[in-house]
Simulated assay, not measured.
Amino acid sequence: MESTKAIPWRIDWATMRFTYIGPQIEELLGWSQASWLTVNDWAERIHEEDRQKTVEFCVAQSQKGVDHEADYRAITRQGHHVWIRDVVHVVRRPDGSVESLVGFMFDISARKEAEDKIVQLQRELELLSYRDSLTGVANRRMFDTVYPAEWVKARDSGHPLSLVIIDIDHFKQYNDHYGHVQGDECLRRVAHVLNAAAADPDELCARLGGEEFVLLLPGTDREAAWSKAERCRELLAAQEILHACSGVGRLVTVSMGIGTIVPGAQDDAKVFLDRIDRRLYQAKSAGRDRFCDNDA
């Protein structure tokens, strides 16, 4: 066991009274050795969130004559809690009936704290795995997870689903002129603008890769998707990110492909995504700094 604080105890099954508990219990929980009289004293000193399931489990296992272990939070006399592992052996008479319970309480607080830290780290890593490390918006993995789910929801509900795929105009020339450090900062600023435009809780802004982003807009019809695209352009223009080698203007601009669909049974999410991607390239071919919402 992780701790040397192993506290022995014994309970008489017929009376449900402690016939012994080790004196170490007072050092661990603050309750005097003499205060542990019945199983009620034990139960009442279990954290209320753990009490019912712990008591019911231990009673059920004991009635079956099965040795068992239980982890729970015990309440100290000062009102704090300590994680306990109770290891229980059921002593039976020759006829199989239960005579007593004997066991040890172990302080496993350090182990639980370490486990909690591991779980928290795992959660943080999972969140990071769905975030683009450079810009902080969702990454392609997140989009590939959320998009199919939103497609199914839209199909089942009959509500529209819109996509806006965005590409920074002449970004290679920006990088070549200003350098990659400034290029990274440009990506971050554009991502911040797009993420601000997709501010509703159900909406998603993701970086697909390079200088390409996507807005996933559930429940958004064609007109609202247009408005969202225009909002992106307005917010980006307000940033006034200089681009001396744009060929479009003096500031960083974007091109966008837009589409809205109410998915039917015969529609395919990948086909729709490819269609919006083609519209993006139509916008670029038409001169950039614009959006396209129809097929050529």
Rank of each mutant, 00 (worst) to 15 (best):
H81F: 14
R233N: 13
R93M: 12
S32C: 08
Q78N: 12
M16C: 14
A14V: 11
T19R: 11
H159P: 02
E44V: 11
K228A: 15
E99V: 06
A286R: 12
R189W: 02
V102G: 03
E27R: 12
A237L: 11
N195Y: 01
D50S: 09
A206W: 00
Q182I: 11
L204G: 08
R92W: 04
L208R: 01
G247R: 04
K153F: 03
R73W: 05
V152F: 01
E44F: 09
K284D: 04
R140I: 02
A149K: 14
K112F: 04
E234L: 15
H80T: 15
E44R: 12
S133W: 02
R73K: 14
V262D: 03
I75G: 04
D41Q: 10
T260C: 11
V254H: 02
E27D: 15
S97Y: 05
D41V: 10
P23E: 09
C292H: 03
V91N: 10
L251Y: 11
S133G: 13
P94K: 08
L134C: 07
G30P: 12
R250A: 13
G264A: 06
R290S: 12
P148W: 03
D176P: 05
R141K: 06
L187H: 02
S255M: 03
G158D: 06
V193Q: 04
L28M: 13
V87L: 08
T260N: 04
W31N: 10
A238F: 04
I108A: 06
K270T: 15
H243T: 02
R140G: 01
F18M: 09
Y147E: 02
L235P: 11
S285N: 13
L121Q: 12
E203P: 06
D41P: 12
L127G: 12
I84E: 04
V214G: 02
G249R: 06
K53Y: 03
T19D: 10
